[in-house]
């Protein structure tokens, strides 16, 4: 097997594993739409990062973090928070696309930013993704209880004196980091799939949030080799194949849980 394929399996697998547990919180807190908009803003971040000569991932991470923190505080009464978040995200997507399209040297990579270019990961990229993934998993584990208290009922925690600011901010930063590092793997348009599909696949078999997070991490990690094998055999684009593989795991899980219920 070629080296680039190993790098792709490693990079996408680690990222998928890190997306699983944080994705559970995205699901529990109904924040898929916020994640989507953060990812859209990430495209603008990539464009800005390239424009001012720093790396695209750094630009994406920076803008995604800012966007996540700002959008999470959206709450004008006459415009629903979701709509506001959508407006900001789509403006980011449109602006980012225009910015990238006007840059001669990246024009060929445009699709890569939207749908990922996992087969082009360098050894340094994989190392960066690995560091980010382990970092995200470590912080998630460290903040597990406050994050969970906030997800279950933030008002209880706040009323009883817990400061919810740190876990909330940390959560948004972690989502933004995964979005940034996911840009090269499955792209700005598909990264949220890695956040929401594995937790949905894990849900029917979990009785505790910890088990669900672990199973989601496993499902996210498994989607990488399955999707890349699919891409290898069919010559289809790799990023979308990884997302489809996650979808297949979800479908298999849903089917298995139905059968389990019917016959158990």
């Amino acid at each position: 097997m070629d080296d680039f394929l190993w790098r792709a399996v490693l990079g996408a697998g680690l990222l998928g594993a890190a997306c699983g547990p944080i994705g559970c919180f995205v699901m529990w807190r109904r924040m898929a739409y916020l994640g989507e908009s953060v990812a859209h803003m990430g495209l603008l971040g990539a464009g800005l990062g390239l424009l001012i000569g720093i790396n695209a991932v750094v630009g994406t991470a920076a803008l995604a973090i800012v966007a996540a923190l700002v959008m999470a505080r959206a709450g004008d009464r006459t415009i629903p928070a979701g709509t506001f978040v959508g407006i900001v995200g789509h403006m980011g997507l449109a602006l980012g696309f225009i910015l990238l399209a006007t840059m001669e040297n990246v024009r060929t990579d445009l699709l890569g930013y939207l749908f990922g270019d996992v087969l082009a990961l360098s050894a340094a990229d994989v190392a960066a993704i690995a560091a980010a993934s382990f970092g995200v998993l470590a912080v998630t584990a460290l903040l597990w209880r406050p994050l969970l208290r906030n997800a279950i009922c933030g008002n209880i925690a706040a009323a009883e004196g817990e400061r919810g600011g740190l876990p909330q901010t940390a959560f948004l930063v972690l989502v933004a980091l995964l979005v940034a590092f996911g840009l090269k793997v499955v792209g700005a348009l598909l990264i949220v799939a890695l956040l929401i599909v594995p937790p949905a696949a894990a849900r029917p078999f979990a009785r505790t949030p910890e088990a669900m997070a672990a199973m989601a991490a496993l499902a996210g990690a498994l989607a990488a080799p399955i999707g890349l094998a699919l891409a290898y055999l069919t010559d289809a684009p790799a990023g979308p194949c990884i997302v489809l593989a996650a979808g297949a795991i979800f479908a298999a899980s849903a089917l298995a849980s139905r059968l389990w219920q019917a016959f158990a």
Partner: peptide, 17 residues
């Protein structure tokens, strides 16, 4: 020390607990 029971406690079916 406060113990609080809120009015709205949405039991989230997506969160196994």
């Amino acid at each position: 020390k406060i113990g609080y029971v809120p009015q709205e406690f949405g039991r989230d079916p997506s969160l196994p607990m």
